[in-house]
Design a protein around this nucleic acid. Structure first.
Lengths: 182, 182
DNA sequence: GTCAGATCTGACCGATCGGACAGTTATTGT
DNA sequence: ACAATAACTGTCCGATCGGTCAGATCTGAC
């Protein structure tokens, strides 16, 4: 055994995330993952009860981050809530770029998943915070637009340094929402 | 035969588009399509040489629309090009909502496809037109943001009438780009 | 050394996939 | 009426999928 034993689990998660992000969940087989990791397919199922369990564990941190943002937002109102929602979502999307890619590719597969059950409601609150509770056409549409803009830009690989990407995403989102960038 | 014979082909395409949009290309089997259409799996392969051929035919109109927009844009410059790019892309995305959904879900599957080979270059030109050729961070990021915002909003089902959706998408995109809505 | 338990694997399984093909049924021109 | 062609299907096939399992191999405590 060349590799320290306990490291294999982490390698599996990392390789799986890479493959899921580039080929999609359904487009990646356990054989593919095993090949990249350099172990047998059976080893994957020694550490994880199923392929879906790998996906669930990969998406858990992002889900927790989203939950934390939701909690932070519940104590804010008005302009403060808007700015916190935008910056919080941008930071989350940038921190979990590969996860966002997976999420967007396999929404149908993941929609029914219990671990992700709370996500739609949280995203709905997040969007509401961005448009300050507006339920008019403008508010609904722009909230969707910001979510899409930030997600797609983070998932794609724009040739821009992370710091610049962050400020431009925040400024762009605020512009979309009709607010003056600070 | 209850159904007029020549109609089957069209029914296959329509049902396949629905299924691809909701479950993804890889998440939809030929058996699934046949069941929805109400014919045998073999019939699908009588009208189409392969599953991929169905997908290719479904995406062709959207690809042609994108090509037409590209041609229209090549004759414009400056503000006119920006507005034409934004409105043209919004109209395209709204006209081909289900196709956009399929495209976003299965980018990895479709990236290497020959029929879609010209798309990345066209999209690059479209984004360039939106930001008036800017290659700075702001331009690159906002171009991505607009593409993502419009695509995701059209793919999702925002409870807003089409007319309102169109004007809000165009206005929102122009705001993102830092331009005054007309 | 040796034994127990954790780690890892080859071989196998049933299900499902996209696709091939011979053959049946309906339609049409004459 | 009757071929000829188009439309359609049941059945089979090899490949690949996620997952199981008995056993091989490694590791650390004593």
């Amino acid at each position: 055994m060349a590799r320290p034993a306990s490291a294999l689990r982490g390698h599996i998660l990392d390789s799986a995330l890479d493959l899921f992000a580039t080929r999609g969940y359904k487009g990646t087989s356990l054989h593919d993952i095993a090949q990249v990791v350099g172990c047998s397919k059976a080893s994957l199922l020694y550490y994880f009860v199923s392929k879906e369990a790998i996906l669930a564990e990969l998406l858990t941190p992002a889900g927790e981050g989203l939950g934390a943002l939701d909690a932070r937002l519940s104590g804010l109102e008005g302009d403060q809530a808007v700015e916190a929602a935008v910056t919080g979502f941008v930071d989350l999307a940038m921190r979990f770029r590969r996860e966002v890619k997976v999420l967007f590719q396999d929404i149908p597969v993941l929609a029914g998943h219990p671990a992700l059950g709370a996500v739609p409601a949280i995203v709905a609150r997040l969007m509401a915070a961005m448009v300050d509770g507006s339920t008019e056409s403008r508010g609904l549409v722009t909230a969707y637009m910001v979510i899409g803009a930030v997600s797609v830009t983070c998932a794609g690989d724009v040739p821009v340094p992370d710091e610049d990407l962050r400020t431009e995403l925040i400024d762009g989102a605020l512009r979309t929402l009709g607010r003056e960038p600070r």
